[in-house]
Amino acid sequence: MGRRSYLFLACALLGTFLNAQTKFELSKIHDSISVNGTTNESFALYLPSSFSQESLSPIVFIFDPAARGTAGIKPFISASEKYGHILVCSNNSRNAPYEVNFAIANNLFNHVFSSFNIKENQMYASGFSGGSRLATAIASLTNMFDGVIGCGAGFSGSQEHMPATHKFSYVGMCGDRDMNYTEMIENKNYLNLIQFNSTLITYDGEHDWPPPQQMLRAFDWLYLQRLKRKEPPPLSDVSNYLAADYEMLKKFRDSNQIFFEAEQLERMIKSYEGVLEIDSLKQQYTALRNSKRLKKQLAHLERLLETERNWIIKFSSQLNKDLENPKKVKWSWWEKELGKLGKLRSKNDTETEKMIFRVRFDLFVRLHSRQNPQLFQQNSEKSEFIKQFLSLLRSSAS
């Protein structure tokens, strides 16, 4: 599958031809454009105000886990207007087997490459949740993309779908109440270990597409990587990104968001080292890392993440058993355990509140995914169990 995808993309880019092009209104989402050569596939399209059919354009291929083309495009519009990206989001690719989604993606690529003049060195892939795993898989299999933005989830679990020696840059994005928050932190550590060009942007949010201002941060970072690859790097342009990063750093400090401050400092040092003078940044980061305040907060967070892992292991194990035999569910066990989780709440500890939210939402997503007929076999007993469990989750939240 990887080789087939790679050959298709390479041939499409080398042999691009333009069909008679329908003129689309600029700066507007066009929700349902039929994919050539298919009977029931479509995509959403956004062309920025700077778009010209006569010029080569950068592009972002977007994958939403529920095949919502318009919803997938909206977070990218600000970045599209700044950097001139064509935005394309499938209305058919969703949480489903990878073979199905690869075929849908190939059909989409075929249509787009035959309809638009694309800058082959400025192609980006992005997705949310299961779409994030798909976007990274496609970029890893083809190695034809300049960057990947993975939102709310990491990798598929298959080795060939993971970043390794590929040339693209990777941005992970995740809200701190997202049930995949721990996974995204672990992915960051893995990518750092293999020295893959990557960063992780966390923010105040749940399991959803990042808001436009966060998405713009991701593309600013990706385009900074492009500037750094030039020989020599245009220092005035790089300095403009540094100034914007300092503004963001000040916002985190002023709002007392110490985790975001530390993350921002770490990213700035990694981004500008060897290009600009950053001794001051290093001193600030060392001082913050050595501060009692951050050490205490990091130790507390690590304890909470370990607690979270234990809750999720216990809940997922019991959930799998109950799904195998939904007639013998011990509802009293679930009521008791969810009650224990709820008792961990503390009015003065927002990190514990976030941990509880992530555990509960992890349960919700596991149940919700079981309703997907493309991934799991359905029967009336399991459906009724899921319905009852979702009701229990809602009632126990209060």
Rank of each mutant, 00 (worst) to 15 (best):
K292W: 01
K321W: 08
E306C: 04
K292F: 02
D279G: 04
W334P: 03
Q257D: 07
Q297R: 15
A262V: 10
I278M: 03
A299P: 00
E335W: 03
Q257S: 12
A287K: 10
N290A: 10
A287M: 04
L276Y: 01
K330I: 06
A299G: 04
Y285W: 09
S317R: 11
Q318R: 15
Q264E: 12
Y285M: 06
T286S: 04
Q283H: 07
V329W: 08
S255W: 03
V275K: 09
L305W: 01
S280C: 01
K282V: 02
E266I: 11
E306M: 04
I313T: 10
K330P: 00
E277G: 09
R309T: 14
L265S: 05
I269T: 03
K314M: 07
D322P: 11
T286H: 08
S317M: 08
W331A: 05
T307A: 07
I269F: 00
L319V: 12
P326N: 08
L281R: 02
Q283V: 08
R267A: 13
G339A: 08
W331D: 05
N256S: 13
A287H: 05
Y285S: 07
E302Q: 13
R293F: 07
P326V: 09
L276E: 05
T286Y: 03
E266H: 12
A299Q: 08
R267F: 07
E308W: 02
I258Y: 06
